[in-house]
Amino acid sequence: MYGAGMAKGLLVTMKNFVKPDRMFTVQYPDRKVSPTELAKMSGVGVFTFMRKNPKTAFKAMTGQMTVPARLKQHPRFRGEEFTWYEQRCTGCASCAKYCPLGIIRIVTSPSGEQVQEGQKYHLDVFDIDIGRCMFCGLCVEACPYDALHMGSGFEEGKYRRKDLVVTVDRLKSQPKHPSTWFRPQIQGKEGYHPHGEKDVTWQEAGRHEQPSRKHQEEKWAKR
């Protein structure tokens, strides 16, 4: 019957109205919670929850309680900050050479602590200007020692362009949450989560162990 489609459309919107689970919206950075949900989170019944913390329950009922919320993120997401492991990096500057935009600036000095001269350099400057970076990931692909990884963060809004430069100090100090992009070995690691509490250590991040000092001495110094 011609015109029945209009009634069908009305039914569809009515279904949307009565069924809350048809909601598409993903809220970020937090979302409002109902008392039922809060009670479920703390693992007690609704009424017990309401009796124990009436203030929170009231706030939740009037729609004022929020909990952090974000979209589930794929581990191979190429995020903004880079994750870099000082222990693995030799200062070869392959990453700087491969970057199509030339935005990685590396200044090295002899580290003096290595078995053989030139095996590893100390990184004085390691600036990545992510204001111009296009997140192609070529620097990560180029790194022969699995020292540089894409990160999994994305909240990098800044007020000044110069704050967008990731410096060596920041690379050293920031929590290590590497993305598994081009580094499939991390994905297999137990308990890996792109935004987890746990940092990925430098031993876990690489494909192979670094040779021990003893091994190195045997191989290079005693020849």
Partner: peptide, 16 residues
């Protein structure tokens, strides 16, 4: 918002 399976204003004050 509900009819079109989205949220509508919900930030400012209880239930927006």
């Amino acid at each position: 918002g509900k009819f079109q399976s989205r949220l509508g204003p919900n930030r400012w004050g209880p239930f927006g």
